[in-house]
Structure formats: structure tokens, C-alpha cells
Design a protein around this nucleic acid. Structure first.
Length: 873
RNA sequence: GGGAGCAUAGCUCAGCUGGGAGAGCGUCUGCCCUACAAGCAGAGGGUCAUAGGUUCGAGCCCUAUUGUUCCCACCA
């Protein structure tokens, strides 16, 4: 007994029910029999436990489409769960929450803090995971936590110690990026440069001997407090004589030298630069070359230190203002000009980064980079689309050592230990250490690792490495990584070199890159603009299927897309169309209908639709193979709506009304094609296809584990397809003529079809009745019907006698217009076929096709001429 | 300063290795024909940014130009 579909398609109800069904049936996770099936792993993107945003919905959708397709194609898919990459953001959220309770992390201590963090993550992360499942994702909070916590910490320690022993990790004092808001160091990748309007303050520094001033310009006057020199270019004739002289630093009174360094450009500004080694990366290098003192003038949160009582405790911008005032008062300010410059900001919080000298841990990149470059050059891993390998190469070729230590608590603590007594340091996998020199207990480095350090190990750490597990053996290297282009630097590159270094093989063979989802005006969605759109609101309104469908429609890999609600509505309408088509089929099925196969005898229109579906299946597979998801989706859309619904179902109606075997055959084909459509569409619209499938098939099977259709040579009826296309063309021509004369469908007219292939049209008689408002149809090789309009195709002339409304003048004008259009074709094709170059060089197949087109156009022209002649008479 | 993307119908975008320009939305006309008005049938609408070049043939390949977006880069 077949089930019923509700009259109204209500996405949320369907999706809730199906979600529940999959959940209970354990369908969210593929069951893998390693001995039998090929496999694939699709790696999901990071930030699972961050806010669920549209970009994330896109990640999930693309992965899930690939997974469902692979699974239905006989592959099993292992989808590695997500992990947390928002350590800094997470920490600040927890700190903030604690502050409201009047607590600080220092007060409650590290262990309690971590517990708090885990509680918070479990709640927040768990909720996000539930939300992702609404999109069809198979992520899982327990596994999630595993990848972050106990599961991967062994791997992290293992790699850290190994790198350290190989000299790939070192600790040292360097200029690093510091975020005063997050109070931690950042890697180069975590700094975003932003153009900001600022000022250029021209200052003068007096010579200590009272012999005048040098003039220089700065964008950051507050760093003056830390100046330890002023530099000029050694070849600058203007300043030759002052090199080696001494200046008195305004407001501070410190004596600083004038030094010569190539770094200074003679044609920029005044050609004089103040040198602040502690607060500028270039100045740091200059200072190093000249043995200058490094004077740090700021605290961790970018306030002036107590060494400068006049400014102590002021934040850097406050101090800037005050210092400019004081400079002006002292006569040191020459002038101020507007200036736009690039300022580094923290990619998490947007705070301006303070370059700062401090002691941090670094990964030495040079030795790790080459294999990662080679792997892509040799095609072991490829980017889709390919152009992203340029970004990849460029980054790797210009990479600098990676600062991996962070001054936060939420993260993996660095496995290094210090002896406070004798200053000894050890790096070890153990949880505690005793000083090898003096035997005293050692203190663990309070810093944690950059969250991307552990993420980089993910393709193997989640499979059990460093243990030699069966999973690791079987699943590494994995297949496809799906991620946005903004994640290439953070994650893709680091997984590449980490995989190659630790496993000796690339972590995945393909990286599918997608673009960003922007708002309807093309702006990046952001919290500050408030233009972000919550995927869940959209899902509530239109359904997860509609959102998924919209996210892949009309989008090419790597390109950004705009989020336009009308597009989601269009997708929902498409789902509704499918729903209603299914409803129509089911309401016309006889009780106890179980047929699963095509009828033995296929009619012309049956072959037409079956052949079309078969070709579609082949193309969709090809497109998915090439990651052309958008192309696949639009082909499905066109076939389902335009071919199946608008034509085949309409063609089937008169057959169903006819009853008997005619009806039964039509029903069999309707169901058979619908089942093919549902399976092809399932990866893109999982919920609705599952719902319809279960209502239609009703044998306890689930579409999620059904098989994906493939091209079948036996079902290719190209010739029949073409033949039936003539009937469709004729019906369209009749409709166009009638519509042009504003004849409503309720006004029926007899049709006289003139054609050289009467038997082909004989089969379509009832379709003309139904779809071309014909009261009757007569077919012959020759007709001459006066007082009628004619619809002309390349294979037929159809007379529509509408004596009352035929306007000879209008009809002539219409035919003339059509004649001109066909003449254009004839000219074009004729010109082409008379071109010796074309005949000589174009492929034979093409020439033949063009000849055929020409013949058809000529035939059509003859028919038009005949009609015109008759009308004139 | 270096690199990349984009520029196609009123709007948002497809267009796979070069073989007579497509979709959705919007517009206009006519239809509630018992699956669907979240629909059906028609129609209109494009010198594929500009200028050259390669080719029998260019939206697609090459060169230059313009506009636009993004990434990278330590110019005070």
C-alpha cells in the first residue's frame, strides 16, 4: 500500500521527519567495510564550533553532496569531524563570561579554566553540531571533542618533540605581531592589513651640540619614547656630515646617534628615519646591525610603561595625542599632514597589531616547504580550480618562520619545561619533568600552541597517529578537502607540509576551493556591518533543501557568490514542483502498484524520456567527477522541470485517462523515471527526495543508501528521441501561433498536419489534442486548407482553420517575419558551407551536421513559401 | 610594488577542451486546463567592457587598454 504525500509541501515538517529517520537509522555515518569497498574521505572545514554562518553552510553543503554521491556510487565515505580553530576567540569569550561573574582566569587557575572552557564548548559546540545536521552534515560532537582533546594531544606532543629534536622548532627573541586586545602573539597569517587614514608628523630632533636640527617624519609619534637612533642613507649627500653626530631625543632627553643604513631611502620623506628597534620590524633589523639598544615602551595591553612618568599608563593612542601636544609645545613639531597607510590588524578582533620584540617558539619553515611545493607541482595534490596553486606557491616561496606560541590558556600547552633554578630547558612528551642538571622539578611553559599547529596534523592525528592504527593505514592519504580560499594559508598549506613531513605522503589528493558567500550587495558578511544572514532562519523559512540547492546553483568553484533570498525562493519552488509531480503520479497509481521496471514495450514518448534521463545520468556523473556541481544541478533542474514535468507528465495524462495497458505502461515509466530523478537529485536535495522516495517506493528502503544512476547503453534511444522531438516542435509551433493571435486554450480547432513522415505524427495525435488545443487531428502528406493560419516547422506544416479570426494581412506579416528568420539561417549556413576553408579544415562531423541543418532550414523555407503563396491567392 | 579574479539580457549569475548566446528573477500577453498561481502557455530583451591579433570560425586563445574586487608585500 503506497503512502501519501501531504497536499502542501512543508519543508520543515518533511525535514524534521527525515532527519529523525536518518538519525535513528544511523544513516549519518557511513559504515565502512574496508575489505570490500573503495573509500573516500572528505575533510570538513574548520571552525565547526564557531558561529554557524553562511560560509559554513556552503562548506557543509558541498561536502555533503560529494559524500552522498560517493556513497550512492558504491564508495563508502568517512567524513572526518571538524575541530576547533577559534582558540583565541573562544578564550576571550570565556574570559568575558567569567568577568561578568567577577572572576579572572588567574584567580581560578588553569585546570578550572579548562574545565569551564570544555563546559562552554560542549554546550555551544553541541548546539552548532545540531544545526549543521539540519543541513545534512554528519558531524558529531563526541568525535569533535575527541579530535581536540585526548585524541590529538599525543600527536601534537609527538610532532613538537620530533621537530624540536630535528631542529625544526626553536625558541628565540624575535619581532612578532602582538594583539594588545587578545594579549597574545600572532602568526603572520593571522594579521590582516587594512588601509587606515592617519597622519604624518614632521618632527625635528635637535643636535646635542646645539648646532641645529634634523627633520624627520613619523606616523607613530608615541614610539619616539623608544627611539635609540636616527638613520640616514650613507650615500645621501645631504646628510653626509651628520653621520656619527649625537641628537637629543625630544621629551625624553636621551642622547641618540645618527647612523647610516641602506634601509633608508633618499627619495622618501626627508630621507631621515627615527629608529625604534622595539616597535618596528625594520627598525629592529637596523638596530641589530648597529648594536642598538632595544627599549620596550609598552606593556602587554599597549599602555606606556612606568619608565615614562609623563605618559605612564596611557594607552598608545592617548599617549600619541599627548606626545604630539608636548612636541608642539616644545617647538619640535614642524607640521602635520594627512597620510593613508597600511596597518596590521588582528584577524580575530580587528585590533591594531603592535609589533613587539619577545621570546616565542617558532617552526623553521625552509626545510618543510620544498616537499609541499613539489607535491603540487608533481600533481600529487591538485587544486580545483587550478589557479589557486599560484597562491599556494607564492605563499610557500615567501614564507617566514612560523610563530606558534600563544599567550592564552585555551589550547594545547607547549611541552617545554624550564628549571627556575639553573635555567635549563627540556622538551618532552611527559606531563612533567625534572631538571636533568640539578634534579629540581621544572615549570611547564605557560604558553599554548597556535591552534593551526594541531589542525595541521589533523588528516593523520584523527586517524590515530602516532599509533599505527588500521584506520591510518587504510585511510591515509585521504581524498578531498573542501574549503574556502581564505583558509588556504591557515590550514591547507600547513596540512600539506605536516602530512609530508610526518607521514611522507600528501594528506589529500584534491582540494576543492569555494568562494565566499557575500550579501545581496556583494559585501562580505560581517558582524560589524550586521549584514550576516543566519542559515537557520533561511532553513526555517524555505527548508534546508532549498538552501542547499541555492548554494550550488549558478556557482562555479572558487568564485564568490551573493546571497539573494529570491534565489532560495526559486529553489523552494523547484522543490515544490517536484513534490507536486510526485503527488500527481501517486494519486494516479492503482492500488497495489509495485512495478519497479520499465514496460516491455516503450512508446515513442517513453523512449524519449528514458533516453533523456539516461543521458542526464551520464552527464551528472561526469560533472560531479569534475567537481562541476553547479552544472550538474542546473541540468537536473532543467530536466525535471522542463522535460519531465512540463512535457512528459502532460503527455502521460491522456494515456492515463485512456486506461488499460496504455495507462499502466505510462504509470510504469512515470514511476521509473521519477525514481531515477530522485536518486540523481538526492545529493542536492536530500530531505525531499528521501520523503518522496519512501512514499513512492514504500518497501522500507531508504534513498540515502540507494544506488546512483549511471549511463546505460541499452537505454540510449537517440533516433527515437529525435523523432519524437518533431512532435514537440510541432506542438510548440501551434501554441506559438495561437498565442500570437490571443486564442485562449478553451477555443479548440481542428489541425491538419502536412508532413512527409505521417506515421511519426500519427503516434502523436492525442498529444496534439491535449497540448495544442486540437479538436481533431488529420494527417496527410499534402493539405490545402483555405482560411487557416499555418504553423511551420522543419518537418511539418500545420493548418489551423480559424475562419472567424484569421486576418490575412496579419498572417502574411507573421509568415514574412518567420521567413526572414529562416532566410537568416539559410544565409548563415550557406555561407559557411560555401567557405572552402571551413570545408577543408572543420571536422567532418560538423560539416555533415551543418549540411543537415541547411537541408532542414530549406525545407522549412519551402513550407513557408507555400503558405504565403496560398494566402496571397 | 607584486599577483589573481571579475566585466555576458533590466537584476543576480552559468557558459566544460573555440563550432550559430543560456538560466533564475523581473517585464509584457493570454490562461485557475482537477499535480503544482510556489503554477501553465507564449513574447520581448545581449556589437558577450574597449582596441588589435591568431583561426575556416572567438564569449572562450594571445597582446594592450579601461573599470572593478580580492590576496600578498616591513617604505619611516
Amino acid at each position: 500500500m503506497k503512502k501519501e504525500l501531504s497536499k502542501l509541501y512543508e519543508p520543515s515538517q518533511v525535514e524534521d521527519r527525515i532527519y529523525d529517520f536518518w538519525q535513528k537509522g544511523g544513516y549519518f555515518h557511513a559504515k565502512i567495510d574496508k575489505n570490500k569497498t573503495p573509500y573516500t574521505i572528505v575533510i570538513p572545514p574548520p571552525n565547526i564550533t564557531g558561529q554557524l554562518h553562511m560560509g559554513h553552510a556552503l562548506d557543509e553543503t558541498l561536502q555533503d553532496i560529494l559524500i552522498r554521491w560517493k556513497r550512492m556510487s558504491g564508495y563508502c565515505t568517512l567524513w572526518l569531524p571538524g575541530t576547533d580553530h577559534a582558540a583565541i576567540a573562544t578564550e576571550s569569550k570565556i574570559v568575558e563570561a567569567m568577568r561578568k561573574e567577577g572572576l579572572t582566569k588567574e584567580e581560578i587557575g588553569r585546570d578550572a579554566f579548562m574545565n569551564r572552557a570544555w563546559e562552554w564548548k560542549a554546550q555551544y559546540g553541541g548546539r552548532i553540531v545540531e544545526q549543521l545536521k539540519k543541513l545534512g552534515s554528519s558531524c558529531d560532537w563526541e568525535r569533535e571533542r575527541f579530535t581536540m582533546d585526548e585524541g590529538c594531544s599525543d600527536a601534537v606532543n609527538e610532532v613538537f618533540v620530533k621537530y624540536y629534536e630535528k631542529g625544526l622548532i626553536y625558541r628565540g627573541e624575535r619581532m612578532i605581531n602582538w594583539c594588545p586586545h587578545c594579549v597574545t602573539s600572532l602568526s603572520d597569517a593571522e594579521v590582516t592589513f587594512e588601509e587606515q587614514a592617519g597622519h604624518f608628523w614632521h618632527l625635528r630632533y635637535p643636535f646635542s651640540d646645539g648646532s641645529g636640527y634634523v627633520e624627520l617624519a613619523t606616523t607613530r609619534p608615541e614610539t619616539l619614547l623608544g627611539d635609540t637612533a636616527v638613520a640616514v642613507n650613507p650615500n645621501d649627500p645631504r646628510y653626509k656630515d651628520i653621520i656619527g653626530k649625537t641628537l637629543t631625543l625630544p621629551l625624553v632627553g636621551r642622547e641618540i646617534p645618527v647612523i647610516a643604513d641602506d634601509y633608508v631611502e633618499t627619495d622618501f620623506g626627508t630621507g631621515v628615519v627615527k629608529i625604534t628597534p622595539a616597535h618596528d620590524p625594520n627598525d629592529f633589523e637596523v638596530g641589530r646591525r648597529h648594536g642598538l639598544e632595544v627599549i620596550n615602551v609598552m606593556t602587554d595591553d599597549a599602555k606606556i610603561t612606568d619608565d615614562y612618568p609623563a605618559y605612564a599608563g596611557m594607552d598608545r593612542y592617548e599617549a600619541r595625542k599627548k606626545i604630539v601636544e608636548d612636541l608642539e609645545k616644545g617647538g619640535f613639531l614642524v607640521r602635520t599632514e594627512d597620510h593613508v597607510h597600511n596597518v596590521g590588524t588582528c584577524y580575530r578582533c580587528g585590533t591594531t597589531v603592535e609589533p613587539r620584540v619577545s621570546t616565542q617558539w617558532f617552526v623553521k619553515m625552509q626545510p618543510l616547504v620544498q616537499p609541499a611545493v613539489d607535491a603540487v607541482k608533481e600533481g600529487k595534490t591538485r587544486f580545483v580550480p587550478e589557479r589557486f596553486d599560484k597562491i599556494y606557491f607564492h605563499w610557500l616561496e615567501n614564507i617566514r618562520d612560523w610563530c606558534i606560541s600563544r599567550q592564552i590558556w585555551w589550547g594545547h600547552q607547549i611541552p617545554a619545561f624550564y628549571c627556575d633554578d639553573c635555567g635549563e630547558m627540556t622538551v618532552t612528551k611527559e606531563k612533567s619533568a625534572v631538571c636533568p642538571k640539578c634534579g629540581k622539578p621544572m615549570r611547564r611553559d605557560p604558553d599554548t600552541l597556535d591552534t593551526w599547529f594541531s589542525s595541521a596534523l589533523w588528516p593523520f592525528s584523527t586517524l590515530g597517529w602516532p599509533e599505527k592504527t588500521e584506520d591510518l593505514e587504510y585511510f591515509y592519504p585521504t581524498n578531498t578537502l573542501v574549503t574556502g580560499y581564505d583558509i588556504i594559508f591557515f590550514w591547507v598549506i600547513r596540512m600539506m607540509f605536516s602530512g609530508l613531513e610526518n607521514m611522507g605522503e600528501v594528506p589529500f589528493d584534491t582540494v576543492l576551493i569555494h568562494g565566499l558567500v557575500r550579501d545581496s550587495q556583494g559585501r562580505k558578511m560581517s558582524k560589524s556591518l550586521g549584514n550576516g544572514i543566519d542559515p537557520l532562519e533561511i532553513i526555517d523559512k524555505y527548508g534546508a533543501d532549498a538552501l542547499r540547492f541555492m548554494l550550488v546553483t549558478g556557482n562555479a568553484p572558487g568564485n564568490d557568490m551573493r546571497f539573494i533570498e529570491e534565489k532560495v525562493r526559486a529553489s523552494r519552488n523547484f522543490a515544490n514542483k517536484l513534490w507536486n509531480a510526485a503527488r500527481f503520479i501517486m494519486m494516479n497509481l492503482p492500488d497495489g502498484f509495485t512495478a519497479d521496471e520499465l514496460p516491455e514495450v516503450l512508446s515513442a514518448e517513453d523512449k524519449w524520456i528514458v533516453s533523456g534521463l539516461n543521458r542526464l545520468a551520464g552527464e551528472v556523473n561526469q560533472n560531479l567527477e569534475a567537481f562541476e556541481l553547479g552544472v550538474a544541478v542546473s541540468k537536473l533542474y532543467d530536466f525535471i522541470w522542463d522535460v519531465y514535468c512540463d512535457w512528459y507528465i502532460e503527455l502521460a495524462k491522456p494515456r492515463i485517462n485512456a486506461g488499460g495497458d496504455t495507462a499502466l505502461n505510462a504509470q510504469k515509466v512515470l514511476v521509473w523515471v521519477m525514481k531515477g530523478i530522485l536518486r540523481l537529485l538526492h545529493p542536492f536535495m536530500p530531505y525531499i527526495t528521501e520523503e518522496i522516495w519512501q512514499a513512492l517506493v514504500d518497501d522500507g528502503s531508504a534513498i540515502i543508501v540507494s544506488s546512483f544512476p549511471v549511463y546505460d547503453e541499452k537505454l540510449d534511444f537517440a533516433a527515437d528521441e529525435e523523432r519524437f522531438g518533431k512532435i514537440i516542435a510541432a506542438i510548440k509551433a501551434v501554441r506559438a501561433v495561437r498565442s500570437g493571435m490571443n486564442v485562449p486554450p478553451s477555443v479548440k480547432a481542428k489541425l491538419y498536419i502536412e508532413t512527409s513522415e505521417p506515421q511519426a505524427f500519427e503516434a502523436g495525435k492525442m498529444f496534439f489534442m491535449r497540448l495544442a488545443s486540437a479538436s481533431d487531428v488529420e494527417i496527410s502528406e499534402k493539405w490545402d486548407i483555405p482560411d487557416s493560419v499555418t504553423a511551420v516547422t522543419d518537418s511539418a506544416r500545420i493548418f489551423i482553420p480559424l475562419a472567424d479570426i484569421v486576418d490575412v494581412e496579419k498572417e502574411l506579416a507573421r509568415l514574412d517575419k518567420e521567413k526572414k528568420a529562416v532566410q537568416k539561417d539559410l544565409d548563415f549556413l550557406g555561407g559557411k558551407l560555401n567557405n572552402p576553408g571551413f570545408l577543408a579544415k572543420a571536422p567532418e562531423k560538423l560539416v555533415a551536421a551543418e549540411r543537415e541543418k541547411l537541408a532542414k532550414a530549406q525545407e522549412k523555407m519551402d513550407r513557408i513559401n507555400e503558405s504565403i503563396a496560398a494566402l496571397k491567392k
